[in-house]
């Protein structure tokens, strides 16, 4: 259980608040999507949760224990994050070296490390690429390796910070399917950050953010039913929602008019 209470953050003293009194709670094992346009504060939120940013107001409780500078190292072993650009995350010269990096840092014995690395690469269908150089892989494959690197550490919480934004539609679908399998088989809590509403369908719970504030939260059905808030958050509505809204208004009687307006 993660509880975020009254979190406020600004990068500089005289700058605007990137997060303004944000309070949220996530249940263990949930797939939570945090959606918002650029600058809405969603990435800042996870950076604070990972201990990358400090000096914030408010508190973060993990299973009832307050996150502090002193205990962040212990929680990092339970949290894993995958960033937007996989090229800037690879430390290892080969796929397996990179996946094992986190385990090396945890001081895991070699035999166990080999097992965990293989299992993580199998989970993302990349075992046959284990000896390849990460730089020579496609964008989707690179991101799968980055996910394997996070999975190998057997995290309780896996955070994906716009991890699919550099991929083509096929690559995105592929990553979402892999995440669905991981979520189902390992019961890992997923925190999925995106600005694309079409990617949140598989989530259990979603949070809409705008300018550092939480605009809406709840089940996917609840989020999609409140179209006015979605429009207010400046997010692009999925295609089917745009059609549905246009049809409901009943203003376009011919196909040509509807297409033109859409």
């Amino acid at each position: 259980m993660i509880e975020i209470n009254n979190l406020t953050y600004q990068y500089q003293v005289d700058a605007a608040k990137v997060l303004d009194n944000v309070s949220l709670s996530f249940k263990s094992g949930d797939w939570v999507s945090i959606i918002g346009h650029n600058g809405s504060g969603k990435s800042t939120l996870v950076k604070i949760m990972m201990g990358i940013l400090e000096d914030y107001e408010g508190e973060i409780l993990i299973n009832g224990n307050k996150l502090t500078k002193e205990n962040i190292a212990n929680y990092r072993e339970k949290f894993a994050i995958v960033f937007q650009n996989p090229d800037n995350q690879f430390v290892g010269a080969t796929v397996e070296d990179d996946v094992a990096f986190g385990l090396e840092n945890q001081g895991v014995a070699r035999e166990e490390m080999v097992e965990k690395t293989e299992a993580a690469l199998t989970a993302v269908n990349m075992l046959s690429y284990r000896r390849h150089a990460p730089a020579r892989l496609s964008g989707g494959q690179k991101q799968r390796v980055a996910i394997a690197g996070a999975l190998a550490m057997a995290p309780d919480v896996l955070i994906l910070d716009e991890a699919t934004s550099m991929l083509d539609p096929e690559g995105r679908k592929d990553i979402l399917n892999i995440l669905e399998d991981i979520h189902r088989e390992r019961q890992t809590t997923l925190i999925y950050i995106t600005h694309d509403l079409s990617e949140i369908e598989k989530s259990d719970y979603a949070v809409i953010m705008k300018d550092g504030e939480v605009l809406n939260r709840g089940s996917i059905e609840h989020i999609f039913s409140d179209t006015d808030t979605l429009i207010k958050s400046r997010l692009v509505l999925p295609y089917q929602m745009q059609i549905s809204r246009a049809l409901l208004k009943g203003e376009y009687v011919t196909h040509g008019e509807l297409v033109e307006k859409l």
Binding site: A73, V91, A100, L103, E104, N105, Q106, T117
Partner: peptide, 17 residues
């Protein structure tokens, strides 16, 4: 940042793949 969040804190307590 990526190295830090993957638990890198120098040589101490590290094993090798």
């Amino acid at each position: 940042v990526a190295m830090e969040v993957r638990g890198y804190k120098g040589e101490e307590g590290r094993t090798s793949y």
